[in-house]
């Protein structure tokens, strides 16, 4: 693949020197070559994204779990090992619990805040919005250390389940706010007015009119906050206690040892799980819109 791109780029560079060419023809050719090299570059990039993961998945089936050469044959033993590991299961359950609780908190807070940001004008609104986004950009190590010394040295609270959940709920908040405010901005408020005119109180209006429309956005926000919590290591490192089981901490200590045949299997299972979830999600909702909307301009604007 690499050589292919090389040739194409080279061809593209020499093209303008083509003597006495018909300008239109030349134009089309350049266009074609450019498009071709664009595809080639895109292909290379996807390869860059996928090759390490692909190799990891391959190794999860290999008898020699660290490197491709020498290849010693295929096996499912790594998966059996992974699924049989009690400590792995414990930390998986721990992480699922933490992520679900933290994301739920973040979602409730984020949805409420989004209503405030889109429906009301109030003093310091922009400041409020900015601080709602900041937990996302503060480096994890700094947030982790700050919360650790705050809890431990100021409040005398030892690290544990609650501290991890609190940290993660804060970390997830911006993702919910970004996605839900984006949706609320495009929401047709006259629908709500109509409901109110017909005598519905605010709660009924929210339940029957607003919620069904913004539910996908809320779901996406929850999912983002959930994933952020589930994959976080550094904040959990500083805030987890001896009885807090966290999958990333379990994995990190295995990776540090470089000696866990089940590691590839666990990691591959995570990739498979995400793949299925993502495929389903993409068939049902505008995932791209939410994702791009999260990290960038709202697509629907």
């Amino acid at each position: 693949m690499a050589t292919e791109t090389g040739e194409r780029t080279e061809a593209g560079e020499t093209e303008p020197d083509y003597p006495g060419a018909d300008r239109l023809l030349d134009h089309r050719r350049v266009e074609r070559i450019l498009r071709g090299s664009l595809y080639a570059v895109a292909g290379l990039l996807l390869a860059f994204l996928w090759v390490p993961l692909g190799i990891m998945i391959t190794l999860s089936f290999a008898q020699n779990p660290v490197t491709l050469f020498p290849f010693e044959g295929l096996t499912l033993a790594n998966y059996q090992l992974a699924l049989a590991s009690e400590s792995m299961r414990q930390s998986l359950v721990g992480s699922l619990t933490i992520a679900s609780v933290a994301a739920s908190i973040a979602t409730v807070l984020g949805v409420l805040a989004s209503f405030a940001l889109t429906r009301y004008r109030f003093k310091f609104r922009e400041l409020y919005r900015t601080f709602g986004i900041i937990p996302m950009v503060v480096p994890g190590i700094i947030l982790g250390v700050a919360l650790r010394i705050y809890f431990q040295s100021l409040l005398d609270v030892l690290p544990g389940f609650t501290t991890v959940v609190l940290a993660h709920s804060l970390y997830g908040l911006p993702f919910v706010i970004l996605i839900v405010t984006a949706r609320l901005y495009t929401f047709d408020e006259s629908l709500e007015e109509a409901a109110r005119d017909l005598g519905a109180d605010p709660i009924t209006t929210f339940r029957d009119v607003t919620f069904p429309v913004i539910a996908p956005a809320i779901g996406a926000g929850f999912l983002f906050a959930w994933i952020r919590s589930f994959e976080d290591y550094i904040r959990a490192l500083f805030l987890a206690g001896p009885n807090t089981d966290v999958l990333t901490i379990w994995m990190f200590s295995r990776i540090k040892q470089l000696d866990a045949p089940e590691l590839n299997a666990v990691s591959s299972l995570i990739v498979f799980g995400v793949a299925v979830a993502l495929a389903v999600a993409m068939n049902y909702g505008n995932v791209t819109g939410y994702v791009a909307g999260t990290v960038a301009e709202d697509e629907e604007n």
Partner: peptide, 13 residues
């Protein structure tokens, strides 16, 4: 509020 939560942590512990 945080303090209360903290006690919960210790409770868990």
């Amino acid at each position: 509020g945080e303090m209360t939560e903290g006690e919960m942590t210790e409770g868990e512990m």
